[in-house]
Design a protein around this nucleic acid. Structure first.
Lengths: 194, 194
DNA sequence: CTTTTTTATTGACCTGGTTCATTTTCTCCC
DNA sequence: GGGAGAAAATGAACCAGGTCAATAAAAAAG
């Protein structure tokens, strides 16, 4: 595998020495998945924090009535895992599935904990990443409360310009929290202006 | 001020030496607010990360139509700030207002950045706190998508048993993303069973 | 190219939750 | 205690978005 994308990504937040980079890479796992394969399966304990080198994945959750709700998409340079399961060693509530053939860098729980001790800068790295992720999650919550579906869709396209071309429309509807039928109507009955 | 609650809280996640604790406390600000006062005001740059020693606050956001949406409540032992504003030094999108007389421990941006350098364990502390906050935020997102209002309300009472007694009902409705009228109906038309 | 399967569109009807207006109940302060 | 303002309850009309069912279009398989 080529760890360059991961190291480039990290260097945006902290400066690792050459030795630290080497250590990190030596502890990193690498795995290829085919389209359709599950990286995390609901009910299992989620073993890895995953960095996406290439490909595209969805994190989703079947609700009590069996409807699938997509929590997030992940593409190149994103982290993806069931964080709740990963940090508490409890059964995953989400599934993570590949929507394309995908290459991941993987860090197991124990490896990552050891890396935090060996390279304290990683604490800083993940602190910063998590700050951003938390703010993004709050933003999304706010949008879901205060914007109607049509505007959430517009917002989605602004924020994830690439993804709409890569995933089917019914998954975008699920991400937005509406039905595929309603999203179809939104697209085909464009904004009647006053 | 008595920093004991803060130190107790921190000790749940990392072990600080006596010197580190002393340094932390020496850098901590302390401030009392009266019921109704604003700790963060939308449009200002949010200057502090705040730890609640006593009292109760709401973080809220007026949507384009002027409706108030409550993003979170904070009580004793919670952190509260507009994190997006705080970390990026940009105007706050949220307001944070006291619902009771409130005592806060405050860390300014520069102070906290310096503390991260002086006490690297704080990177770990906040990394762990943010992991939990992020997971909680994702959970809430999922609940908002997949549960009807009545069950979200039940869930809210399970998760925040104290708060319902401390804040007016219309604020809980706002937190749940429904109107005060509808919450009133939910409470007074109890779950018709089959 | 043709068949099969997966996605997307469209229509008719339905419902959870909103809006607005009115009334009742709670607080709390003089 | 009594009165004023805030909070909660209630009723009636309404709407954003959902459900179900039936095509149509596109993609994948052969």
């Amino acid at each position: 595998m080529d760890p360059t994308p991961l190291l480039n990504y990290i260097s945006r937040y902290v400066n690792l020495s050459a030795e630290e980079e080497a250590l990190l890479v030596s502890k990193a796992g690498y795995r290829k998945y085919l389209k359709g394969q599950f990286v995390v399966q609901q009910g299992d304990i989620c073993r890895y924090e995953n960095f996406v080198l290439s490909g595209c994945l969805k994190t989703f959750y079947p609700d009590p009535e069996g409807q699938e709700h997509i929590v997030m998409f992940a593409v190149e340079n994103w982290w993806v895992t069931d964080l709740g399961s990963f940090i508490t060693r409890t059964p995953a509530r989400f599934n993570v599935q590949c929507l394309e053939n995908t290459e991941l860098v993987q860090f197991s729980y124990d490896t990552l904990e050891q890396l935090y001790l060996d390279i304290p800068k990683l604490e800083r790295l993940f602190r910063i990443i998590l700050q951003k992720a938390y703010v993004a999650s709050q933003d999304r919550l706010v949008r879901n409360f205060s914007l109607p579906a049509r505007e959430r869709y517009t917002e989605f396209r602004r924020q994830y310009p690439g993804i709409e071309q890569r995933v089917p429309q019914y998954m975008i509807a699920s991400y937005l929290g509406i039905t595929k039928e309603f999203l179809s109507r939104i697209k085909n009955r464009p904004e009647e202006e006053s």
